[in-house]
């Protein structure tokens, strides 16, 4: 009987001890408060320049389609930048691109297209190539800077037609701007492609209803393209009766501005930290 009672007493004491301890613990925990709204502790990572981000995204889409990357010089011979791309000397087509000259034969490349010729000179079809890089034109205002970035792309093989150009560019633009983007191909002129096209997309801001960005047309000019002119093939000794190809050029600043809603191209090169850290 006594044992039984003692046993019960022990149990009670034990229980009470546990209860006191757990209450103590609870009290301690309750006092140990934090301010959950304080910032987390970190060494924050930096940011890639928005141009690099968009270049990478663009390169990524095309490399997934099997395009390989080529690069070429930024200070270029007139021959590669103009002549072999079918811009004859003293031709008004040269006025389409305001050129920085080093001397009569050497210029700052005005587009990444010279790498087309440089690549085709040393490699044979089939070719699927993209060329990212800096290009230069002597022009400066809200929508022009003397240096900017382009991606040139081209594809050469047997039986490549204008329908393939439309197919590849539609794939790219749908990936980059979204599946609902509408495309418009309209005739234009570049000396190194024929037929040549300018490609518009439905305005990314208003969806095509018309706004300030698309000048109320509902369309935004996004890139130039075309079937590679047989004259260019002549310069690189490809037989245009056997091979055909297409080429296109994308202005990276332009698509970056559209993607992020940037209104002044010069912001890219001011390198203000408050700008760089936004992307």
């Amino acid at each position: 009987m006594a044992n039984e009672t003692a046993g019960k007493l022990d149990e009670i004491i034990n229980e009470t001890g546990k209860a006191i301890k757990s209450r103590e613990k609870a009290g301690k925990l309750a006092k140990d408060i934090i301010d959950i709204t304080l910032p987390g502790k970190k060494n924050p990572p930096g940011k890639l320049h928005p141009i690099t981000q968009v270049l990478n995204e663009t390169i990524d889409i095309f490399t997934r389609l099997g395009f390989q990357i080529k690069i070429g010089p930024e200070i270029e011979l007139d021959y590669y930048n103009f002549e072999a791309l079918n811009f004859p000397p003293d031709h008004p087509a040269r006025d389409m691109q305001d050129t920085f000259f080093v001397d009569d034969k050497i210029i700052l490349r005005t587009h990444t297209s010279p790498v087309q010729v440089r690549t085709m000179e040393i490699e044979n079809p089939p070719l699927r190539v993209i060329v990212p890089g800096k290009v230069y034109r002597c022009d400066s205002d809200v929508s022009h800077t003397p240096m900017f970035h382009q991606i040139e792309g081209f594809m050469v093989d047997k039986n490549i037609s204008f329908t393939d150009l439309k197919g590849v560019l539609e794939l790219f633009l749908h990936e980059f701007f979204g599946k609902n983007t509408r495309l418009r191909f309209r005739p234009s002129f570049f000396p190194f492609t024929e037929p040549s096209a300018e490609i518009d997309i439905s305005c990314v801001i208003c969806g095509g209803k018309g706004c300030r960005v698309c000048k109320h047309s509902g369309w935004i000019e996004i890139l130039g393209a075309g079937m590679i002119d047989p004259e260019v093939f002549k310069y690189v000794k490809y037989d245009s009766e056997i091979y055909t190809g297409f080429a296109f050029g994308i202005g990276i600043e332009r698509i970056t501005m559209l993607k992020f809603g940037i209104t002044d191209i010069r912001l890219f090169f001011d390198n203000d930290l408050r700008f760089l850290q936004q992307f």
């Binding site: 099997g66 089939p126 699927r128 191909f185 005739p187 024929e194 040549s196 047989p230």
Partner: peptide, 26 residues
């Protein structure tokens, strides 16, 4: 090729079909 461009331009680029190229994997 200049005549071909004229045909394509007047025929209408929007009427030309979209096709993805058949090309060897590399």
């Amino acid at each position: 090729i200049d005549l071909i461009e004229e045909v394509s331009r007047i025929y209408g680029y929007d009427k030309i079909k979209v096709h993805t190229p058949n090309i060897a994997i590399s």
